[in-house]
């Protein structure tokens, strides 16, 4: 029974892994944020519900298309969220290596998330603009010049908001890339140190 393989495993098993506290805190903070990102999905669900209510009340084809389209976007978003954060909820073990690996993987997933969010955000904005325009046109909400001006102003305002979110996403992407670079360097450094 006392073969080498078992002895090696025994030694590894009995070692008490020590993970730097800051690293644990960082990972746990990220976990909380990931959970919050799920809670924030209540907002699109509410918007989706509102479009359904609108479609039911008006029985208008444009409203029905708006509701259907909105839910397609929401479901795609949720599917992506589930897939993107699969397997990165907790470290594989309580070791520095596992925590660093998890942080690196989370950075990569965040970059995917940002890329996806930017594309979806502009597509959704364009879709909502077109659908709203069709609804207003169909219900006679765009008859006078002032109607057009008000709608144009509302669209411009929405575009400004989306652009601000876009800039925020770009900055977040830059920050995440810097963090990923730091973590990759840290991993390389730790690997080098352990070989010395």
């Amino acid at each position: 029974m006392t073969d080498d393989e078992l002895e090696v495993w025994r030694r590894q098993w009995r070692s008490q892994p020590q993970v730097p506290l800051e690293l644990i805190r960082k990972v746990e903070r990220e976990t909380v944020n990931m959970r919050l990102s799920w809670i924030s999905q209540i907002l699109p669900a509410l918007i989706g519900a509102a479009t359904i209510v609108g479609a039911v009340i008006t029985q208008n084809i444009s409203w029905i298309l708006l509701a259907g389209g909105t839910w397609v976007f929401i479901l795609i978003g949720w599917y992506f969220l589930v897939q993107n954060y699969k397997g990165v909820w907790e470290p594989s073990a309580a070791t520095t290596a596992a925590y660093v690996e998890l942080s690196i993987e989370r950075c990569r997933r965040t970059l995917n998330d940002i890329r996806f969010s930017i594309v979806m955000m502009w597509l959704l904005t364009a879709f909502v603009f077109i659908a709203d325009y069709q609804i207003l046109k169909g219900t006679g909400g765009l008859t006078t010049t002032s109607d057009f001006l008000i709608v144009a102003a509302a669209f411009a305002f929405a575009t400004v908001i989306v652009s601000i979110v876009f800039i925020y996403q770009i900055r977040k992407r830059r920050r995440t890339k810097t963090e990923l670079e730091y973590l990759l360097n840290l991993r390389a450094k730790l690997e080098t140190d352990s070989k010395m």
């Binding site: 590894q12 020590q18 644990i24 746990e28 903070r29 290596a97 596992a98 070989k195």
Partner: peptide
């Protein structure tokens, strides 16, 4: 964050990263 309590937050300098990786793999 409140759940985190580590007896000794300092990494053990004698334990290499590669060793930890092996341990992590075993765990």
């Amino acid at each position: 964050d409140e759940d985190i309590e580590v007896p000794d937050p300092r990494p053990n300098p004698e334990r290499g990263f590669a060793t930890e990786q092996q341990e992590a793999r075993l765990f």
